[in-house]
Design a protein around this nucleic acid. Structure first.
Length: 343
DNA sequence: TTGTGTTTTATTGCCTCC
DNA sequence: GGAGGCAATAAAACACAA
């Protein structure tokens, strides 16, 4: 049998929409498989709506008849009318999944094949998902940028305070020499300086806390990288990609940002609460065997993974201009969202 | 008018659920 | 195993700048 061109009628009697496809041996098999989805291939080149009835195939066996594969001129694929799209949009707003009854009803109203309605909903869900991803990414990026700015400001503050401490310490040492006692200088002679010093010490403590957190972050990241390397050594096929469950971060309700970060991903600290000032309920852990699925990436539940303390840090892989990926298998917002980002 | 990028409609293959 | 969902992809239709 010669490979040829099939033309399919994908419409109801009113619309006459068609498409064509080149069919090799595999194409025929694929086309036969379309029957269970309700697509009816027709002999091409016959024009519907001008009194010529299209001869539909009645079974896959018909498709094996050589006459059906003659080269034919394809009809153009036609778009839905604005009215049809409007009704479909309204229906989609009500419910983005299509039950069989609703599909049949819509198809009847619109003069389309039920299959066309199903395809439209499928594509519409895909577009909706893309939009949602873009919005989520923009939100996360804005959040990340704000936090990075905050982090940079803290670093500067830290630097300024350290300089201040050095200056004050030198001054105190200068005073200590003639008067012989640090306490005397503080108590009696210079109360303003004492106050400034106390404030500086408090700020320094905060700054050092931040520095310690950053250090802890570094340590955990190193551990993470070591762990990933071990995993890679043990299972050469594994990819070790980063998967981040950003559910609660996206919803802005506490942290719950459980991440997996590998050595190829920039990592940053993220605060947990909506107010951006807490690190809580945030865990991270390595993934055994490469990319985790959305179903099994629950933090703290995977066997064979070591987990770090809740308050260690939150890790978030992102940076300006990075590519990103996010999936949410369930279109009904179940809040289970995964990300991976890279340079 | 034409080249090019984007959107829309549809197919294919794989997966999950019942 | 059938039905339906999704990701990836093809191709027609459309938009728009040069």
């Amino acid at each position: 049998m010669e490979p040829g061109r099939l033309i399919f009628n994908t419409s109801g009697s009113g619309n006459g929409q068609m498409l064509f496809m080149d069919c090799g041996a595999g194409g025929i098999a694929g086309a036969a498989g379309m029957f269970h989805r309700g697509v009816r291939p027709v002999l091409g080149g016959m024009e519907e709506g001008r009194g010529v009835k299209r001869p539909f195939f009645t079974s896959p066996d018909d498709m094996l008849e050589e006459e059906y594969y003659d080269e034919q001129l394809p009809e153009k694929k036609r778009r839905l009318t604005p009215e049809q799209v409007h009704l479909l949009e309204r229906s989609f707003e009500e419910e983005n999944k299509l039950e069989p009854e609703r599909k049949t009803e819509l198809a009847r109203k619109l003069g389309l094949q039920p299959r066309q309605v199903a395809v439209w909903f499928q594509n519409r869900r895909a577009r909706w998902k893309t939009k949602t991803l873009e919005r989520d990414f923009d939100r996360l990026k804005a959040s990340f940028d704000a936090l990075r700015a905050d982090h940079d400001a803290l670093l500067q503050d830290n630097h300024r305070l350290r300089s201040q401490v050095v200056t004050l310490t030198e001054k105190m040492q200068d005073k200590e020499a003639p008067e012989g006692s640090f306490g005397a200088a503080v108590d009696a002679s210079e109360p303003e300086q004492a106050a400034a010093e106390a404030e500086a010490k408090t700020s320094l403590a905060d700054a050092e806390e931040q520095a310690a957190a950053a250090e802890a972050f570094e340590v955990v990241q190193q551990q993470q990288q070591l762990h990933v390397k071990d995993e890679e050594r043990l299972s050469p096929g594994s990819g070790g990609s980063a998967v981040l469950d950003a559910r609660d971060a996206l919803l802005g309700s506490g942290c719950g940002l459980a991440g997996v970060v590998d050595s190829s991903v920039d990592s940053y600290c993220f605060p947990g609460g909506a107010g951006g000032d807490e690190y809580h309920e945030c865990v991270m852990g390595p993934v055994a065997g490469g990319i985790q699925s959305e179903e099994d990436d629950g933090a703290g539940s995977d066997e064979g993974c070591s987990y770090y303390p809740d308050d260690a840090a939150v890790f978030f892989a992102a940076a300006q201009g990075h590519s990103h990926h996010h999936t949410d298998d369930d279109d009904q917002d179940d809040g289970q969202i995964s990300y991976w980002m890279w340079n």
